[in-house]
Design a protein around this nucleic acid. Structure first.
Length: 466
RNA sequence: GGUGGGUUGGCCGAGAGGCGAGGCAACGGACUGCAAAUCCGUGUACACGGGUUCAAAUCCCGUACCCACCUCCA
């Protein structure tokens, strides 16, 4: 059974046929580190992390390259504004990005190349493009080098647009572009920009153009032909269109499948710093448990817009708590055990263009069966269902057993001693039919965020939101 | 002006010609000292107007509204 993915270039579902059997190379556009990541940014990370986990459990060896754009106009402007070196701004935000990966259980990419570390590769590529007649240095002495869109007849193939229908870039008249749609491969150094943000080239000092970095880095780490190129839908044009044009014009074959995740909206428009409707990952995980946020971001199909709402986020947290509750109770009964077999229907859903919603339906059914098995005391069945449920959760990066390991320190022993004492006192009160005293203890614990559950095997407790 | 996508029950969210995905909420019941958790049961929704068909949420035509992109953007 093969994985089928929607290819934005052909606008059709395509089977994923690895170029090298058993291996898959994926490039996805990382962040321009001009600020810390918001939950829209991290949605993309979750999507590609789930893709990677799914391919890996299928036995494929996955190489993921996600770039960090650590130099651009906004980063330079931010440094200027804060009176801080631009590279310090970029690095701080890159660390914030890594913290967000970590907190949401996204495994780091195989490698995260930085644009500033790949200037020689870019220069080489520009030379190739100039030699082949697809790029030209600006004649106004600006030091810019442009890609000549009219020289590449396939330009527009990714976004299905023809050059003449496109609106020209507004800055075009002020530059030496032959066609207003030509874009910068390389940007000449400008008066007032720090010298640390300029590199020597045959065309003078300057800095990388955004589109070219990705082409150069993808080629370096994945070769001239690779399996999947991904990113947010907002990058489809111009960024990915331009990447594709450059790389093909330079004689490369480039990506076989283009995957674009839909945006996360808030208040009716895309979450973006420029709109001012951002919610930082670091803030949201203070309000809901991190796996609940991950569940929320992963639960909708990756090609569907998520219109963010607090209500929907809270629902996701409740839904995840139900799953987590089963895993915890089943684990107490039969031990955590190992990951089991993934049900066929779950696999079918995931193979069908990563249909997480359908996969979750299977997962919830298995949880319901598991809960029944717990009630029936069927330990063999509980163990089997638990193993399967955990295998599915692992693919989604949502296995509570794994998460509990990382959160163990916060569930500290002092707390456990205190709560156990109170629970014991309440059990005594119940035995003496002093329900008022018993309820008081339960209410006090509840007010402190500790929830109790009476079961045939005794009282269980858990800290809300953990 | 061009390109792509969308509008599904109280809410979220799949599906893509016939059989009510799943979750959340609500209501009833079982269990419980009471709860909680869990289980059982309860809902006939697909923007609007036409059309095709034995059969349309699903296909076709039209209309309205929404989102993304055509400037930096996950």
């Amino acid at each position: 059974m093969t994985v089928r993915l929607y290819d934005s270039a052909s606008r059709e579902i395509q089977p994923l046929v690895p170029i090298t059997p058993g291996k898959v190379g994926i490039y996805h556009c990382g962040l321009t580190v001009q600020g810390p990541p918001h939950i829209g940014h991290i949605r993309k990370e979750v999507v590609f992390d789930v893709l990677r986990r799914w391919l890996e459990q299928d036995g494929l060896e996955v190489t993921i390259i996600a770039n960090v754009t650590d130099i651009d106009d906004k980063i330079l402007a931010k440094g200027e504004e804060l009176g801080e070196p631009w590279f310090s701004v970029a690095y701080r935000n890159e660390r914030a990005l890594h913290a967000a990966y970590e907190v949401l259980g996204c495994r780091p990419p195989t490698y995260e190349p930085r644009a500033t570390g790949h200037v020689p590769e870019m220069i080489e590529m520009i030379e190739t493009l100039i030699d082949r007649g697809h790029a030209y240095p600006a004649e106004d002495g600006s030091g810019d080098v442009y890609f000549d869109v009219r020289s590449w007849s396939a330009y527009g193939e990714l976004s299905n647009q023809s050059i003449d229908d496109m609106l020209p870039a507004p800055d075009a008249p002020a530059t030496a572009k032959r066609d207003p749609r030509d874009f910068a491969l390389w940007k000449g150094h400008k008066e007032g920009e720090p010298q640390t943000a300029a590199w020597s080239t045959p065309w003078g000092r300057g800095r990388p153009g955004w589109h070219l970095e990705c082409s150069a880095m993808a080629a370096k780490y994945l070769g001239h032909r690779f399996d999947i190129h991904g990113g947010g839908l907002d990058l489809r044009f111009p960024h990915h269109e331009n990447e594709l044009a450059q790389s093909r014009a330079a004689g490369q074959d480039f990506a076989q499948i283009w995957m674009h995740n839909a945006m996360l909206n808030l208040g009716g428009s895309k979450m973006a710093k420029s709109v001012g409707n951002t919610l930082m990952v670091s803030e949201v995980v203070k309000r809901v448990p991190a796996p609940a946020l991950r569940y929320y971001l992963a639960a909708a199909h990756y090609r569907s817009i998520i219109e963010f709402s607090e209500e929907a986020l809270a629902e996701a947290a409740t839904a995840y708590a139900r799953i987590e509750g089963f895993v915890t109770r089943a684990g107490e009964l039969v031990g955590a055990g190992k990951l089991g077999t993934i049900p066929a229907r779950f696999a079918e859903a995931m193979n069908d263009d990563l249909s997480v919603p359908a996969a979750l339906a299977v997962l919830h059914n298995e949880v319901a069966e598991g809960n029944k098995a717990i009630s029936a005391g069927d330990r063999v069945l509980v163990a089997e269902l638990l193993a399967g449920v955990r295998a599915m959760l692992d693919v989604l990066g949502l296995d509570p057993v794994t998460w509990a390991g990382s959160a163990a320190s916060s569930n500290n022993e002092t707390l456990a001693v205190l709560v156990d004492q109170l629970v014991a006192r309440r059990t005594e009160a119940k035995a003496e039919k002093d329900f008022a005293a018993a309820d008081l203890i339960r209410d006090q614990l509840s007010a402190a965020g500790v929830e109790l559950e009476d079961t045939p095997a005794g009282t269980r407790w858990s800290v809300k939101g953990m």
